[in-house]
Design a protein around this nucleic acid. Structure first.
Lengths: 223, 223
DNA sequence: TTGACTTCGATTATCGATAATATACGATTC
DNA sequence: GAATCGTATATTATCGATAATCGAAGTCAA
């Protein structure tokens, strides 16, 4: 799936994506085309293309003649993304169980690294290993379409980890990876899928204060 | 979700997307930038942007200096997309049940229209109503992230319907929408979700001839 | 003082032209 | 005659400049 593009616009896109994901570029920050062009010693055109691709990667948002800025993902969007990611990983696990059978060593090592990072309070390490863990499962599904959609959620699902989230019992969350590995090793994709979906649910920030009245309809704007 | 972009590049993008989805532009067909620019009486730049957006919409594929062509979705990618769509709709149904309670009339009408089209052998109508049905559920989830990813699968999951697919018992498939409506009306999102996932599975074309050796791992290039 | 209108600076959207690259075709060599 | 290499052509990638638009600051009248 990964084309090895050597264009200037791809270089710029990758670099900007890196900065957005690692926080160098803050949410809401404006991305001025000519400024970026000057930095990369290029013209405006490749920058524009890079920005447009970042837009469809959901990393930035743009409106015509107004400009482009780093997307600010609120708690609601984070919740949405985690729910979607959970559904994707559930599907992935079901297909991936076969691929892992007999060799979950790498995955188990990653799971251990997550726990270690959580205990050490190493959030950066936690985020990195966690991403690796979940990406490995998405990859092992053998479903390139799934993987691409999964990757497009990286922004929403990664940022909150980097930021402060003290309402979570990190070591406990970390330990919930091990049963997933067990299920995959046993070839029980369905179980692994359920565990993954449940795992993702833990990250959904607002516990929905509206308890009891679940019959409230939520509207959504049609296309 | 839908920004009302009035740029030239957006106009071109929309028009090209329409042509690809309705089959005017065939899979594998080449999209030459200057030719398109001439047709729209524009310069190359807006066309390029449009093509890049189409690429991230998975409608076309491009390689540097080689050009852009309409993506040819094989049976494998169709299968992948249906599996993913099923997973997304399962999640959507779980959240959407509350939104529908008390008013599934529109949805039921759509379901009936699907059955009618299937019986009449009206494939175009079937595709249109079916898309409407599933989109309604994705929309009702209230999860904008989900909806966007769902929309990005429109190409893979719509094309095969327009094309010849005589291996399916269309009326039977059409009738499987009704139980989904029932479940949503009853507020049983979990059931509706399971039914939707099962429904999507019916469209996965190849029954995987490679029976027995399901343990082959498939590699995928990391980012 | 306030409100609408105008002007100006900044930035985006688009243009026309040029450089870079790939593919196809023909010349040259063995 | 076949293979290799250069060349021509078509197309993409990028450039520098211009037109279009937005937002803010300033202006004028009531």
């Amino acid at each position: 799936m990964g084309y090895e593009r050597s264009c200037l616009s791809d270089h710029i896109r990758r670099e900007l994506a890196r900065r957005i994901l690692d926080g160098t570029l803050r949410p809401g920050e404006r991305l001025v085309e000519l400024k970026i062009a000057a930095e990369f010693a290029s013209s405006q055109t490749p920058v524009r293309e890079a920005l447009r691709e970042l837009e469809s990667m959901r990393l930035v948002e743009a409106s015509p003649y107004k400009g482009t800025r780093v997307r600010d993902v609120g708690p609601r969007q984070t919740a949405e993304a985690y729910a979607v990611r959970g559904a994707l990983e559930r599907l992935a696990a079901e297909s991936a169980a076969a691929a892992f059978r007999g060799d979950v060593r790498a995955l188990r090592a990653t799971a251990r690294a997550i726990v270690a990072a959580a205990r050490a309070g190493d959030r950066e390490g936690y985020a990195r290993h966690d991403l690796e863990f979940h990406r490995a499962i998405a990859t092992a599904s053998g479903n390139a379409t799934l993987l691409q959609l999964w990757e497009s959620l990286a922004f929403e699902t990664r940022t909150p980890l980097t930021l402060t989230r003290d309402d979570l019992d990190w070591p406990a969350v970390a330990e919930s990876h091990a049963p997933i590995v067990d299920a995959l090793e046993a070839g029980d994709g369905a179980l692994a899928g359920r565990l993954l979906e449940e795992h993702a649910r833990k990250f959904i920030p607002p516990p929905r204060a509206e308890a009891g009245t679940t019959s409230r309809a939520r509207r959504a704007s049609g296309s």
